[in-house]
Amino acid sequence: MTEKAIDFAYLSRQTAGDHELERELLTLFAQQCIVHLRVIDDSADHQQRMDAAHTLKGAARAVGAWQVAEAADRIEEGLAGPQREASESALDALALAAAEARAAIARFDCGA
Score class of each variant (00 low, 15 high):
Thr15Gly: 09
Ala71Ser: 13
Phe8Thr: 03
Thr27Tyr: 04
Ile75Trp: 09
Glu76Trp: 07
Ala52Trp: 05
Arg61Asp: 13
Ala52Glu: 04
Met50Glu: 13
Gln47Ile: 10
Gln14Cys: 10
Ile105Met: 11
Gln48Gly: 09
Ser89Gln: 10
Val63Tyr: 04
Asp109Met: 07
Ala93Lys: 03
Thr2Phe: 10
Thr27Ala: 11
Gly58Leu: 14
Leu96Gln: 11
Thr55Cys: 09
Ser43Trp: 04
Ala86Phe: 06
Ile6Thr: 13
Ala16Cys: 12
Ala59Thr: 04
Ile75Phe: 10
Ala69Phe: 05
Tyr10Lys: 09
Thr55Ser: 15
Lys4Ile: 09
Ala52Tyr: 03
Arg107Glu: 12
Thr27Phe: 04
Ile75His: 07
Val63Cys: 03
Leu79Lys: 01
Gln48His: 07
Phe29Ala: 11
Gln32Phe: 01
Val35Pro: 00
Gly111Leu: 13
Ala106Phe: 05
Ala72Glu: 08
Ser87Ala: 09
Ala65Ile: 01
Gly81Thr: 09
Met1Gly: 13
Glu76His: 10
Ala95Asn: 14
Ala52Val: 09
Asp41Arg: 14
His36Tyr: 13
Arg74Trp: 03
Glu77Lys: 15
His19Val: 15
Ile6Asn: 08
Lys4Pro: 01
Lys4Ala: 12
Ile40Leu: 05
Ala62Lys: 08
Lys57Glu: 02
Ala97Glu: 02
Glu85Gln: 15
Ala80Lys: 14
Asp18Leu: 10
Glu77Ser: 14
Phe8Leu: 13
Leu25Gly: 05
Ala101Pro: 01
Ala69Val: 06
Asp45Gly: 01
Trp66Thr: 15
Ala101Tyr: 03
Pro82Trp: 05
Asp18Trp: 00
Gln31Glu: 15
His19Tyr: 10
His46Asn: 04
Glu88Leu: 14
His54Val: 11
His36Thr: 09
Glu24Val: 12
Glu20Asn: 08
Gln14Glu: 11
Ser87Pro: 02
Gln48Cys: 02
Lys4Arg: 12
Arg61Ala: 11
Gln67Leu: 13
Gln67Pro: 08
Gly111Glu: 14
Arg84His: 14
Trp66Glu: 15
Ile6Cys: 09
Ser89Gly: 01
Asp42Val: 06
Leu91Val: 08
Met50Lys: 14
Ala80Thr: 07
Val63Gln: 02
Arg38Trp: 06
Glu76Tyr: 07
Asp18Gly: 01
Val63Lys: 06
